[in-house]
Amino acid sequence: MEHQRADIAVIGGTGFYAFLDDPHEVEVTTPYGDPSAPIAIGTVAGRSVAFVPRHGPHHEFPPHRINHRANLWALRSLGVRQVLAPCAVGGLRPEVVPGDVVVPDQLVDRTTGRVQSYVETGAVHLPFADPYCSGVRGAVLGAGEATGGGAERGIVDGGTMVVIEGPRFSTRAESRWYADQGWTLVNMTGHPEAVLAREMQQCYAAIALVTDMDAGAEDGAGVGQAEVFARFKENLDRLRGLLTATIERLPDPDGCSCSNWADGIDLTYEVPDGSAGGVSGGGRA
Rank of each mutant, 00 (worst) to 15 (best):
R249C: 04
N235T: 10
A245I: 04
T268R: 09
P251L: 12
T244K: 10
D263N: 11
R231I: 05
L243W: 00
L239Q: 05
I247A: 04
E234V: 05
G241S: 08
G274K: 07
R249G: 05
R240L: 06
F232D: 15
D237Q: 13
F232R: 14
P272V: 10
S257P: 11
I265G: 02
D252I: 01
D263I: 04
R238P: 00
L236P: 00
K233T: 09
L267Y: 04
N260E: 13
T244Y: 02
L243C: 04
L243G: 01
C258Y: 00
C258K: 02
G274V: 05
L239H: 01
G241C: 08
P272A: 13
I247H: 02
F232G: 12
D273L: 12
W261F: 13
T268H: 11
D237E: 13
G264S: 07
R249T: 03
L267E: 02
S259F: 08
C258I: 01
K233M: 12
D237M: 10
D266P: 03
G274F: 08
V271I: 15
D266S: 11
T268E: 09
D273A: 15
D254R: 10
P251S: 12
R249K: 15
V271F: 04
F232N: 15
P251M: 13
P251N: 12
E270R: 11
T246N: 07
D237C: 12
D266G: 07
S257T: 14
P251R: 12
L243Y: 01
D263V: 07
V271M: 03
E248F: 09
G255K: 04
A245H: 04
N235F: 01
W261E: 08
S275M: 14
D266F: 05
V271A: 02
A230R: 08
V271S: 02
G274A: 14
C256F: 07
W261A: 09
D273Q: 13
R240P: 02
L236Q: 07
R249N: 08
G255L: 04
P251Y: 07
G255D: 03
F229H: 11
G264M: 05
E270S: 13
L250Y: 03
I247R: 00
G274H: 11
W261M: 11
Y269M: 09
V271G: 01
C256S: 10
C258H: 02
N235S: 13
R240G: 09
P272L: 11
I265C: 06
L267H: 03
W261G: 07
I265D: 04
S257V: 13
L267Q: 07
E270M: 08
F232L: 15
T246R: 11
T268I: 10
D263A: 13
T244D: 12
E248Q: 15
C258N: 05
W261S: 08
D266A: 15
L243H: 00
G264L: 03
R240E: 09
G255M: 03
L236F: 00
S259L: 14
L239R: 01
N235R: 14
D266W: 05
D252Y: 07
L243A: 03
L250E: 02
S259T: 14
T246P: 04
I265T: 14
E234K: 08
F229I: 11
E248A: 15
D252M: 09
L243I: 05
N260R: 14
R240N: 12
E234T: 10
R249Y: 11
K233G: 15
G264R: 06
